[in-house]
Simulated assay, not measured.
Amino acid sequence: MFERFNEDARQTVVQAQEEARTFGHDYIGTEHLLLALLRRTSSVGGRILVRHGLDHDAAGDMIARLLAGTGQDALDAKALETIGIDLGAVREKVEAAFGPGALDRGPRPRRERPWRFGGHIPFTARAKKVLELSLREALSLKHGYISDGHILLGLMREGQGLAARVLADAGLDFEVLRQDVRTELG
């Protein structure tokens, strides 16, 4: 699939690795792809996002807040709540059985991270899905290549990742954004 990526799409993937390194992450998620698009304001995806009122710093701040302690936990609790699991009740039962703080996370064990020295950082399943969907978007537009605009379309089509959450929280209308990208891609 990567052989179909044009230079802007390739640079977006390279920049996503840099964004992950900046956050100290050992993965490339949808949020890193979004930040990479926003970093490249001369390309289709970045230009359109900025035109719709989202910039790299604002998106980075939103991502940092969402990933901070309560941000990710709140997302997890909400997801569990939608399938009928009350996280508070589970916590109470576990702490009653194993003692207070039994579910508190300790420090993460330090792992070797070869990517700190220039190695490749792996994509999350959701980020891989976005790249797959970017190919589908390119094919649906009858393009023989994948551009960063197609990656933006893939982010919106995937719709569940942190990048989609940031776009929605920023008040961007996916349909309007999608139409602008398609128009610019031709």
Rank of each mutant, 00 (worst) to 15 (best):
A9Q: 00
Q11N: 12
Q11W: 08
Q11G: 08
T12H: 00
V13E: 03
V13D: 05
V14M: 15
Q15L: 12
Q15M: 14
Q15F: 10
Q17I: 06
Q17Y: 09
E18A: 14
E18F: 10
A20P: 07
R21P: 08
T22R: 13
F23M: 15
F23T: 01
H25D: 13
D26H: 12
D26I: 03
Y27C: 04
G29R: 00
T30I: 05
T30N: 01
T30S: 09
H32W: 01
H32R: 02
L35R: 06
L35V: 10
A36V: 04
A36G: 10
A36H: 04
L37P: 08
L37Q: 14
L37K: 08
L37M: 15
L38K: 04
L38P: 05
R39A: 15
R40S: 06
T41I: 14
T41L: 12
S42K: 11
S42G: 10
V44E: 09
V44F: 02
G46T: 08
G46L: 10
R47W: 08
R47I: 06
I48A: 05
I48V: 13
L49Q: 03
R51W: 05
L54H: 06
L54C: 09
D55H: 05
H56E: 15
H56L: 12
D57F: 07
D57R: 13
A58H: 11
A58C: 07
A64P: 02
R65P: 00
L66A: 02
L66C: 00
L66V: 03
A68D: 08
T70P: 13
T70D: 14
G71P: 02
Q72P: 01
Q72C: 07
A74I: 09
L75H: 07
A77N: 12
A77C: 11
K78L: 14
K78G: 13
A79L: 07
A79W: 04
A79V: 07
T82L: 14
T82F: 08
I83V: 15
I85F: 00
I85H: 00
G88N: 13
G88F: 05
R91N: 06
R91V: 07
E92T: 15
K93E: 15
K93F: 04
V94D: 00
A96D: 14
A96K: 13
A97K: 15
G99I: 07
G99T: 06
P100R: 09
G101S: 02
G101Y: 02
D104S: 05
D104H: 09
R105W: 01
R105S: 05
G106T: 05
P107M: 09
P107G: 09
R110F: 09
R110Q: 12
R111A: 14
E112W: 10
R113F: 02
P114A: 11
P114H: 12
